[in-house]
Design a protein around this nucleic acid. Structure first.
Lengths: 343, 343
DNA sequence: TTCTCTACTGTGAACGCTCACAGAAGCATG
DNA sequence: CATGCTTCTGTGAGCGTTCACAGTAGAGAA
């Protein structure tokens, strides 16, 4: 009479079963599992064979109980919703982090803090030690969550430069300023001199730095800064459309515009088309991000590529280092100009 | 001399500390934590006060070790990438599930099985009992993963109707057939008679059902089915564009088209514009999904709304029921016609 | 009174693992 | 031969919780 295996799950083998099959002790099996130092080759081999034979998989709960580590990290999003819905970059980041962590056999717990209630529950969960560290994505970058976590001693890496420079928290970001410089230099190299800009939100480092890069290059090139050519948006498509409209009103002779996100650039294209301007003949348009929106636009956008794959890899690397005891670190990654049809 | 709390985390309070503060035993605290049956009001109150005072949070690892439950579920995506990048619906689903689970205090583990290696690692993780159940999103809907999990006795809910009807696995889906019927009826009600269709992939139930609804309504209305008016796509924007182009070639007198996804409908709009057709005057266009693409299109798409918020809620509900021992269940949710500017 | 029943409470054992420690075996050195 | 050192192995304890069980107190019935 054999045991039925329909329906319920069988009780999985433990380290004890492996030890018995391999003819060694629990301790030896544990050592093999954790790097194999101080284990004879013969025992090593016997244990590995026993693991394969029994189909043993470590019980992470039991391990965590004694080590105090959870061997998992949280991916925390502190946005009501727009980010998750509108921003194509978010997907890339989430996927990149999931995979980078998977390579270390570390599961990713997704946490979305929309309401204040959710935020509290999540903070309690995190500070109780249920994750070893947190990857934080938040757009309003003076987020109190970052400071709270840092004060609680939770390893933390933020995506994008945080606002308060005093706060000692790790972050990984693209080089916004340098990217903006590249784009504006590119527009100037096309012979354009009336270069407008639709900035990001000016209460975020990203918004500020991209504008700074713009001004820097114009000044270098001896082109006067004209306030009528500067408006700001909030990275949304709608704000890009409104921004371009305002620019055309205030400076009808504009012959190029640097828009600080692809989504806004898409909106700007709509506004330009409506105003009867041809792109790129009358007005050259440069975006930022190289998100999916850049290739979907008509014409396809010349843009500044943010290396999201590298950003997610670095976020994970820095976080794991910090969990391992290293100090917080800031990583700034280079961007790249991608030429398409809008310039 | 006070203990420094800079840097490292303090050791969190245990159930023991709570018991001591409340003046009761571990057992009583545990009972309060798990529903409070057979606990006197006085003890109940004392324990709750002690929990607040000490800031106690249950150690889930210790609990899981003994209960055998992990009190977490996996969200498994078996797609190489396109879904995560192109499909706006995916975001909505992921967020919905995260929140529905959060209400039960259950964390969501995100798992992406792109490569074969990842798939194996994830299967081992799941079957080892590290999650209590799995929410599965996969487009090629005869996915072997579903059967493997079912055979391993892992509670499972799939998003969308699975292909092999024999396999007894839970799923939650929108009523594709009925949605298609509504849309085609709507197009007919506008007086259109040459109604084309760009279907989804015909090796998936969603693709098949939407086409079936289309044919059904035409037949009911006494309009002959014309094969030249039927082409199929794969839900991508590009395939919608190509599909509409082919339809115009084969049936230049087409005066309406039902496109089985909003993303494809966006592509169709591009093709129609290029061919000089006005939408909706010359050709009315109906989409499916009511994703972000529907409102971003110009003109905004009339479409069939899939109730993604309800879908995610139902997926979680059915999964938790199944974890609780109930039998697998199928849930089919009603759709809704959303009128915009393309019809 | 005594017994039974219900409502509640405390206690030891276990869950599966890692860690610290003790000890064994092998080998070179004094 | 004792001593030390290195490499390897086994053993008990304990992580924080739940669960089963035993036990207590009080109320009501016989």
């Amino acid at each position: 009479m054999t045991m039925s295996n329909t329906g319920g799950r069988r009780k999985p083998p433990t380290i004890h079963d492996v030890a018995r099959v391999a003819g060694v002790s629990r301790g030896t099996v544990s050592r093999v599992l954790n790097g194999g130092h101080y284990v004879s080759p013969a025992a090593q081999e016997a244990v590995n064979a026993a693991i394969r034979k029994t189909g043993y998989v470590v019980n992470r709960h039991a391990r965590s109980l004694i080590t105090g580590r959870s061997d998992s990290v949280g991916f925390l999003l502190t946005e009501p919703q727009e980010k998750l819905f509108e921003d194509p970059n978010f997907n890339v980041l989430l996927r990149g982090c999931t995979q980078a962590l998977a390579a270390h056999d570390i599961p990713l717990l997704l946490m979305v803090a929309g309401t204040e209630d959710e935020r509290r529950r999540i903070m309690r969960y995190i500070t109780a030690g249920h994750v070893d560290g947190v990857l934080l994505v938040s757009s309003h970058s003076g987020d109190p969550v970052a400071e709270q976590l840092r004060d609680a001693g939770v390893p933390l890496v933020q995506c994008g430069k945080p606002m308060g420079l005093g706060s000692k928290v790790s972050y990984v970001a693209a080089d916004d300023r340098d990217g903006a410089r590249d784009m504006v230099r590119h527009l100037l190299s096309l012979g354009r001199r009336r270069v407008g800009v639709v900035t990001g939100p000016l209460d975020t480092p990203g918004g500020v730095d991209r504008l700074a890069g713009y001004k820097e290059v114009l000044t270098e090139a001896g082109v006067a800064i004209d306030d009528r050519l500067i408006v700001s948006g909030d990275y949304s498509r709608a704000s890009g459309e409104a921004g371009a409209e305002r620019l055309l009103e205030r400076a009808p002779d504009m012959d190029a515009v640097f828009v600080a996100s692809d989504l806004m650039a898409q909106g700007a294209l709509t506004a330009l088309r409506r105003a009867g301007r041809r792109v790129p003949e009358d007005v050259a348009v440069g975006g930022f991000d190289d998100s999916a929106a850049a290739t979907e636009s008509v014409p396809a956008l010349t843009t500044i590529r943010q290396p999201y794959d590298r950003i997610s890899n670095e976020m994970v690397r820095v976080l794991l280092a910090q969990i391992g005891g290293e100090d917080p670190a800031a990583v700034i990654l280079p961007t790249e100009l991608v030429r398409r049809d809008s310039t």
